[in-house]
Computed example of a mutant assay.
Amino acid sequence: MIVQMEDTTAAKIEKKLNQLRDENGVVTLGRVLTLVVLAQAGHSEVAVEAANYASHEHPCRIIVHVAHSRTDETRLDAQLRLGGDAGASEVILLHGYGKLAEPTETLVSALLLPDAPIVAWWPHDFPQNPSRSSIGCIAHRRITDSARAGEPYESLSQLSQQYRPGDTDLSWTRITNWRIQLAAVLDQVGPVTVREIVLEGSDVTPSIVLLGVWLSSKLDAPATIITDDSRRGLDRVCLVTDDGAVQLHRPGRTVAVLSQPGQPDQQIAMPVRDLNACLAEELRRLDADEVYGEIITSGLATAQITTRTAGQDTEQDAASGTADSPEGAEGTREAGNE
């Protein structure tokens, strides 16, 4: 069921939801959280699709604020999606114009589920300080996506400076499978000294930088990111040890090959993670991600990371050299291919 409401208010929307619940019984009340999505005009449907997918695992009320032009006449249009049109949730799309193009606590407060955690998600650009924004202040978790922001590497640096417990970034979530497999490999090989870490992919995306920082911080070894335009996303991580190279290589999009000294190659299921899977993972926890907090703050500032193009010997600092480089501009297109 889809209901359109033009030039309305949050109070009228809540009243309409209660009316539909009484008349049709299409909405249940077993919601575990409120997901507030702060989207941009023209990009909201992708975010709604991901939220709907995640809602099958985490039943919730989804409030999507779509920011339109601030120069338009101030008004609020809404669309209510219930039942089959909203997955396992109820979706409220708020199209804000003029002064209402700015999402605020006042605008959404009447629509929040009582006594339920609040998760705020910025699918693209996000405020200078997410935790101090009007919506971020009331949220238990704050999800950003530096890879899809206008300036990915400036955004990564910004998140590092403004981090507060409860913040997370989907560029970090995209490398969950890589971290799980690499940690399992190191547990399997036992105590070993890693001399160097090499990460290879199509470009220097925020996800590759975060993976390099995590590995460098945990293994106390320098990391080098090698880029090659013929590749697609992150596809190889090599740990150079005294006993030989331990390598995890994903040449396609579903299966990775693990190579270890003295052992036959092993195939591992490791599909590329899409936006739906990443958002669903982040909604599984409402506590702070302490590992991400450590990596985005102290790790990003102190890790030994360099980057170079395949076939070139010139290296540059990943944190300072990629933000304005051609590789940095390309990185946004590869978001989701880690």
Results as ranks from 00 to 15, higher is better:
Q161T: 10
N129Q: 13
P117R: 02
D228W: 07
K16S: 08
D324L: 10
S146Y: 02
S89G: 09
T332A: 13
R70A: 14
G87L: 05
V119H: 03
R148A: 09
A149N: 03
L35I: 00
G262N: 08
D242T: 14
G30V: 11
P59E: 09
A329N: 13
V213M: 12
T34F: 06
P191Q: 15
Q263Y: 07
Q267E: 13
I305T: 01
A39Y: 02
T322G: 02
G98L: 06
E45S: 04
P271N: 07
D7P: 01
G150L: 08
G336D: 12
V192Q: 13
T302D: 13
Q19I: 05
A329K: 00
S320Q: 11
V37W: 04
R273N: 08
R333Y: 10
M5K: 11
P130T: 02
I62G: 08
A51Q: 11
G321A: 09
Y163V: 02
I225V: 14
T302C: 09
D72M: 03
G328H: 04
G87E: 03
S44W: 06
G30I: 06
L279F: 01
E23Q: 15
T322M: 15
D77S: 07
T307M: 11
R75H: 15
V240K: 08
R179V: 01
V194M: 10
L211K: 06
G331Q: 08
Q263L: 15
A54G: 04
D203L: 02
E294N: 09
L283W: 02
E102R: 05
A245M: 12
A88Q: 12
D72Y: 05
T173C: 07
D22G: 02
I197E: 05
D228S: 09
A101K: 04
L219Q: 05
L234P: 01
Q267P: 09
S160D: 11
V240F: 02
Q266G: 05
I2S: 06
L17V: 08
T168C: 12
A54C: 03
L234K: 02
A120V: 08
K15Y: 05
P264K: 04
H43W: 06
